[in-house]
Write a protein that binds this DNA or RNA. Structure first.
Length: 485
RNA sequence: GGCCCCAUCGUCCAGCGGUUAGGACAUCAGAUUUUCGAUCUGAGAACAGGGGUUCGAUUCCCCUUGGGGUCACCA
């Protein structure tokens, strides 16, 4: 089973729809394994479904994987010794191999129509039989086959699965999985459009491309016997298999976009840091010896072993992702954070990095996601804020009292010779004391007046940054609003 | 339903025959505090059930239960 060839692994997404977190998840483990063992990591595009595959989706996969930082040594866009790496461009190879299989008797043409197959399925369902192809065309005489072929009848090529015996999948993390051949369907290998199915293309490519370890999701485990049977039919040594657990929704079902964000584009738009996302994904199914939770991709590469991948079913836990993301954001050098914030400015305005840098001491530790910046820093960028009377009025106080608090504050602030936080705070505390209000209440009224919300970064530091004119104007506007209702 | 996989706090992971069953997120309480956040302290919280094997099972085996995956000319 094991071999001493240099490690070659791959991730083989199919370009349908948005780039999926599951792809990044599987890519991560393949990548870490390859890098750890000094092997190669390849990207292969499995676009044999002509109905659903799109170029846009393929481009999005490239971009998304590059965004998270999982780069490939060989792939459709970077080339490599086994190009092409796009299955739609390898049709001849599959057809040739399918023909070999037919010639050796390991596969056979099947002329059954979609209608017959559907009817068959219905019948099996009604009789509560096991679902699957009944092998009708396997019984066809060579003459009948010849005739049908000569007549140009549409057909597929099916694998002639042995009716007896069993196939054992040696899974690196799960041990041996024994499956009776009788329960394996005569899988279609070549579709009537001449394109291969996943099963054929996958096996042929993995062999031809020298893949040593197939690290893929658990959902493939039941079709692995088909693949093993194919390797056997071709006379090839199979790679090592390792099935990763599936990422789950809250209800434990396989992660799906109906119940969870699954698009990597979404994670980027939300402002998750690639390094945080990768760290999180690594935690879902793998662990480091000393129980460490926070580690870089480099750390993971150094420590990675397949033996430590888990088999239990991880639920995608956003709370933990958010915590990790906040942690990584806090650890970023401010200049770097400012750079990454470019795409996350309030109201989509252009990013003034010098100013962003000034706001960061107030906001960096409060961000869980980069997108939080737009809302939390909004008041720094807005012309004015528009709190309501109710918002401006501290609990247990009246609007009139709120107006009085703000008047006292305005007076104190106007008298500030230096517009800095310490001076403002001292003056405001004194004003509160002399006018008989509690610091807390006056500060809250002022906070809402200036920032527009009862939750904000530290008040006086924010005001220092906002500048005298805008602050005083906002306080005046708030007093006005409170007085006029 | 057949086949297959999985099963430790609410969640993620550690444990690979003998532990007060550990860590993290989350939760709760306290400290700090101009709000929020961050930070620091502390607390509650788990071996699905039943049989074996063994001097001894969370750990090994079997059954049950529960959850999931898969049964396409999609991957």
């Amino acid at each position: 089973m094991s071999n001493d060839r240099p490690v070659r692994v791959r991730v083989a997404p199919s370009p349908t729809g948005d780039p999926h977190v599951g792809t990044a998840y599987i890519a991560l483990f393949n990548y870490a394994f390859a890098r750890h063992s000094g092997g190669r990591f390849l990207l292969r595009i499995e676009d044999t479904d002509r109905e659903r595959s799109t170029k846009e989706s393929e481009r999005a996969i490239f971009e998304a994987l590059r965004w998270v930082g999982l780069t490939w040594d060989e792939g459709p866009d970077v080339g490599g010794p086994f190009a092409p790496y796009r299955q739609s461009e390898r049709g001849d190879i599959y057809r040739r191999h399918a023909a070999d299989l037919v010639a050796s008797g390991a596969a056979y043409p099947c002329f059954c129509t979609a209608e017959r197959l559907a009817a068959l399925r219905e019948e099996q369902k009604a009789k509560k039989l096991n679902l699957g192809y009944d092998g009708a065309c396997r019984l066809l005489s060579p003459e009948a086959v010849r005739a049908a072929l000569d007549a140009g009848k549409p057909h597929v090529i099916r694998l002639a699965v042995p009716r007896e015996g069993q196939t054992v999948v040696h899974d690196l993390v799960r041990g041996d999985v024994v499956i009776q051949n009788a329960t394996v369907d005569d899988q279609v290998l070549l579709k009537s459009d001449g394109f291969p199915t996943y099963h054929l293309a996958n096996v042929v490519d993995d062999h031809v491309m020298g893949i040593t370890h197939v690290i893929r999701a658990e959902e493939w485990i039941t079709s692995t016997p088909k693949h093993l049977l194919l390797y056997k039919a071709f006379g090839w040594a199979p790679p090592v298999f390792c099935h990763m657990p599936l990422l789950r929704n809250r209800d434990k079902s396989k992660i799906s976009k109906r119940k969870n964000p699954t698009s990597l584009l979404w994670y980027r738009e939300q402002g998750y840091l690639p390094e945080a996302l990768l760290n999180f994904l690594a935690l879902m199914g793998w662990s480091v010896a000393e129980n460490r939770e926070v580690f870089s991709l480099e750390d993971m590469i150094r420590e990675f072993t397949l033996e430590r991948v888990a088999t239990s079913e991880p639920i995608f836990d956003f709370q933990k992702l958010d915590w990790l993301n906040g942690l990584y954001i806090r650890a970023l050098p401010p200049a770097e954070l400012a750079r990454r914030l470019r795409e996350f400015m309030p109201q989509g305005r252009a990013c003034d990095e010098a100013f962003v840098l000034k706001t960061l001491p107030l906001l960096q530790e409060r961000l869980k996601k980069l997108s939080d910046y737009a809302t939390m820093a909004e008041f720094f960028y807005a012309e004015a804020v528009h709190p309501t009377v109710a918002e401006l009025t501290p609990k247990k106080a009246s609007p009139v009292q709120a107006a009085d608090m703000l008047s006292a504050a305005r007076e104190a602030l106007s008298a500030c010779e230096d517009w800095n936080a310490a001076t403002m705070e001292a003056r405001c505390r004194a004003a509160a004391a002399s006018s008989g209000f509690k610091d807390r209440d006056l500060f809250m009224a002022l906070r809402v007046a200036v920032t527009g919300a009862p939750v904000s970064p530290p008040l006086f530091e924010s005001m220092a940054l906002l500048g005298r004119d805008r602050c005083l104007a906002r306080v005046a506007a708030a007093i006005e609003r409170l007085r006029t209702g």
